[in-house]
């Protein structure tokens, strides 16, 4: 480079560095903050840990909640993603956090109700959490391809009884609630079907459409359902599907496990009363809001608010019911 060229480059470098320094200073001052200066909760920023990757359903809901909660509670609410182990890593961090209400977490059924029965998880779902509030319940229907020979759930059962080991089915993960609930249902019906473990609802959907499997139990099915490529035969949860009330549920068919797949907010055990009260009030308002409902609708979830007492009761009951069902299934080690 010529002397003049390198001289200019030097000036440009200096200017760049200077700008950076200014930016850094501005950012640091902007970053300081989140102190509300009052003594009551919350007096500083709150962090909600999401045990899943950003961009997923749970993460999207949590960020929407965080935005609204910031306004209601008057303190900044941050969202931090800590993925791993199907949610168990992030949930573990929530369990270990200090019980002051400034670290909370997004929780869903699998890491709490299912995973502890199969894996060595770093927490005890019965003792280690304060379940603050539930906000969403997601449907998890039993699906078949639209070209399938099964017109109803009864058809499916009949075929499976007549052809042991031939019905091929899958769910989005292994040992999750849909998997175990369906296993329990099949066991009760004395059916022997072939479970093909798959990873993620996309693989299951592709399997349904491509003829690899006959039946799938997943929750992300909006696209192919609208396209008419799949049909709903049953729902695993206790409540019927709002737009398909005639579809039978596992509860109606009296199967051992009719799990509710929920999304909720939780914190470490023994959170102070004022924290619980603050979030009860905030979540009640948030879940009743229009913007929350429209997000829920678009992501195929049903708004289902439960306050702390009810939610805690429900989760513990779910955990018990699942343990019992697993014991009967003989899958518990």
């Amino acid at each position: 480079m010529s002397a003049a060229g390198s001289g200019r480059a030097l000036v440009a470098c200096h200017a760049f560095v200077g700008a950076f320094a200014l930016f850094a200073a501005a950012a640091l001052t902007a970053g300081c903050g989140g102190q509300t200066g009052s003594d009551e909760y919350p007096s500083r920023a709150i962090t909600i840990i999401v045990p899943y990757a950003p961009g997923g359903g749970g993460d999207t809901f949590t960020r929407a909640i965080a935005a609204q909660a910031s306004e209601i509670l008057g303190a900044k609410v941050f969202v931090e993603n800590r993925t791993g182990g199907g949610g168990t890593v992030g949930v573990g961090s929530v369990a270990r956090a200090p019980a002051d209400g400034y670290t909370l977490g997004f929780v869903s059924s699998s890491p709490l109700v299912m995973a502890p029965n199969f894996l060595d998880v770093p927490y005890d779902p019965v003792q280690d959490f304060t379940y603050l509030s539930r906000f969403i319940v997601t449907p998890h229907p039993v699906l078949v391809g639209s070209g399938s020979r099964f017109g109803s759930f009864a058809d499916l059962l009949e075929y499976a009884r007549a052809n042991p080991g031939r019905l091929r089915w899958s769910s989005a993960g292994i040992n999750g609630a849909p998997h175990i609930a369906t296993l329990a249902a099949f066991r009760q019906e004395e059916i022997d079907a072939a479970f093909i473990p798959m990873q993620g609802s996309s693989e299951v959907l592709a399997g349904l459409l491509g003829g690899t499997i006959d039946m799938g139990v997943i929750s992300d099915y909006a696209g192919p359902l609208a396209a008419g490529d799949i049909r709903v035969l049953a729902e695993i949860g206790p409540e019927p599907l709002p737009d398909l009330p005639s579809v039978p549920t596992y509860q109606q068919m009296a199967y051992p496990l009719a799990p509710t797949i929920f999304f909720g907010l939780a914190g470490p055990a023994e959170l102070p009363g004022e924290v619980v009260a603050a979030w009860d009030a905030a979540m009640r308002t948030i879940t009743a809001s229009d913007s929350f409902s429209s997000i829920a609708h678009r992501l195929s979830g049903r708004v289902a608010y439960l306050d702390h007492q009810e939610f805690q009761r429900h989760v513990l009951a779910d955990i018990d019911a699942t343990r019992e069902a697993l014991r009967l299934l003989g899958a518990n080690e």
Binding site: L205, G223, A227, D229, I295
Partner: peptide, 30 residues
Amino acid sequence: PLLAFGIPGDVAAALILGALLIQGITPGPI
């Protein structure tokens, strides 16, 4: 696969699907 069936093939497509769904657009043959 996303545009033809509404099935996202990988992380990138899944993210785009999420963004489309939030806007009320359901990709697929319909």
